[in-house]
């Protein structure tokens, strides 16, 4: 049953590490990240500054901790938007299968899929001003069709099962069946998809703040740390290596967790592996 338990555990451990770091940064960071100390710029790693300081004298460890918070908050809320709007749409499309609303919802989905998401995200954040909220919206919009499609696909399978027929003969309406019987049965699929969209959201947030369209200064974010490090990369490569490595490990952890969960939760794969 558990063919890759190790990968799943690595994924959970990495994700938990970043989550705890982000939560910890809410109550405590080693140094204030908004205070610029020009005299203490570009210091090497020491006991006071475990990872050294950047060109403005800010502690890199503290920056990374708060940056984790920014990334996770943006990606998490974007996933929330996608689920809150996309899942009901997908459930409705499945409940009204083959009807005009179903067709409209699915074609609308295809349309959003066809848009170059990064270009639109850059457009939205450039037009409405760079901020964490606009970055969330720009990423969240593209999560909607993903969840709608997953929810519809999963729900269509559940609708054919006998207990749904039983519920219908018992007089339950489509809305109640969707909420009480369909949703719990596709929760597995949605959780796995949420993990994947979460990791994509982290990458998208990093890309947006790298081009200066994410959270505004002085709020630290991994993407902007990379952008600021770019001119210093020749003399101080660590400034670029650390935030990039943080993004990579966070995304890696989430992907490993998503894959592991899918193997664990999807009975079809589980059977095939035995």
């Amino acid at each position: 049953m558990r063919r890759f338990p190790l990968a799943l555990w690595i994924g959970v451990a990495l994700s938990a590490l970043f989550l705890i770091t982000a939560l910890l940064s809410l109550v405590w960071v080693p140094h204030d990240v908004t205070r610029l100390v020009i005299a203490g710029r570009l210091q090497p790693a020491s006991t006071t500054f475990p990872l050294g300081t950047d060109q403005f004298g800010r502690d890199i460890l503290s920056m990374l901790m708060v940056g984790a918070r920014t990334s996770i908050a943006v990606a998490l809320v974007a996933v929330g938007i996608g689920m809150l709007i996309g899942v009901p749409l997908g459930l409705a499309a499945a409940a009204l299968r083959g009807s005009l609303p179903d067709e409209i919802i699915m074609r609308g989905n295809d349309l959003i899929f066809a848009f170059p998401s990064l270009v639109i995200a850059i457009l939205i954040t450039a037009v409405f001003g760079p901020s964490a909220v606009n970055a969330i919206l720009a990423i969240g919009i593209f999560n909607i069709p993903v969840f709608a499609r997953v929810a519809r696909g999963g729900a269509l399978g559940v609708w054919t099962l006998d207990y749904i027929l039983a519920a219908r003969t018992a007089g339950k309406g489509r809305v109640r069946i969707s909420a009480e019987h369909i949703l719990p049965n596709i929760a597995n699929l949605l959780i796995v998809q949420a993990t994947i969209q979460f990791s994509l959201g982290i990458l998208a947030e990093a890309a947006l703040s790298y081009v200066g369209l994410g959270a505004r200064p002085p709020t630290p974010s991994w993407g902007r740390m990379l952008a600021e490090a770019q001119t210093m990369i020749y003399t101080h490569p660590m400034l670029a290596l650390l935030p990039g490595g943080a993004i990579m490990l966070m995304v890696l952890g989430l992907n490993l967790m998503g894959d592991g969960l899918r193997d664990l939760l999807d009975p079809r794969i589980r059977r095939a592996r035995q």
Binding site: Y210, L241, I247, L256
Partner: peptide
């Protein structure tokens, strides 16, 4: 391949330049 998917490509680009 898991690592390759997780690497932000603009960061990888910076490393290549370096």
């Amino acid at each position: 391949t898991q690592l390759g998917i997780a690497v932000p490509n603009f960061w990888f680009a910076m490393l290549l330049v370096l």
